Amino acid sequence: MHVKPVAALHRAAATGRRLAESRSGSPRALDVLTALSCLALMALDLPGLAAADNSLTGPMAAVVLALGAATLLLRRRMPWLSLAVALLFIGWLHELTLIQFALYSVGRYRGRRSGILATLGYVAFALVLFTVPGWPLDRAENLSSFLSPVVPLGVLASAVGIAAYRQDLVRELDARRAESAVLQAVQQERTFVARDVHDFVGRELTLLTVRSEVLSLRARDTAHAKDFEELADTARRAHLVLNEIIVQRGERTATPGVDGLPALADESRRAGSPVRLSMDPEVHALSPLRQAAVYRVVQECLTNAAKHARGQTIEVSIATDGPHLRIAVRNALPDRTPGRAPVSTGSGTASMSERVRSLGGTLTATRTDDSYTVAATLPRG
Rank of each mutant, 00 (worst) to 15 (best):
L205I: 02
A175Y: 05
D174F: 02
E204Q: 04
R203M: 01
D199L: 02
G260I: 00
C301V: 00
V294G: 04
T255F: 05
R190V: 14
L242M: 15
T234H: 15
R296V: 05
R249N: 15
P262R: 07
V298K: 05
L286I: 00
V197A: 13
R176S: 04
A219E: 07
V197G: 11
A292V: 14
G311R: 13
E244Y: 07
C301L: 14
A225I: 06
P281N: 01
N304I: 15
C301M: 13
G311C: 06
A292E: 09
R269V: 08
M279E: 02
L286R: 00
N304H: 14
S268C: 12
T222Y: 05
T209H: 03
A178G: 04
T234V: 13
A178S: 09
R190P: 07
R310D: 01
A225F: 12
D233Y: 15
N304D: 12
Q299G: 10
V210W: 09
E282R: 07
E315A: 09
L205G: 00
V298S: 10
D196G: 01
S278C: 12
R249A: 04
G250H: 00
G311Q: 13
R310I: 11
K307M: 04
L289H: 00
F192A: 13
M279Q: 03
R211F: 10
T255N: 03
H284K: 00
A232R: 02
D280I: 01
A232G: 07
Q248H: 12
L277V: 10
P256H: 01
V182D: 07
N304E: 05
A265G: 14
V247D: 12
R218N: 01
L183Y: 08
S216Q: 07
L183R: 11
D199F: 15
A238H: 04
E204C: 06
A254T: 11
Q299K: 09
R195N: 04
E230I: 01
Q188F: 04
A254H: 01
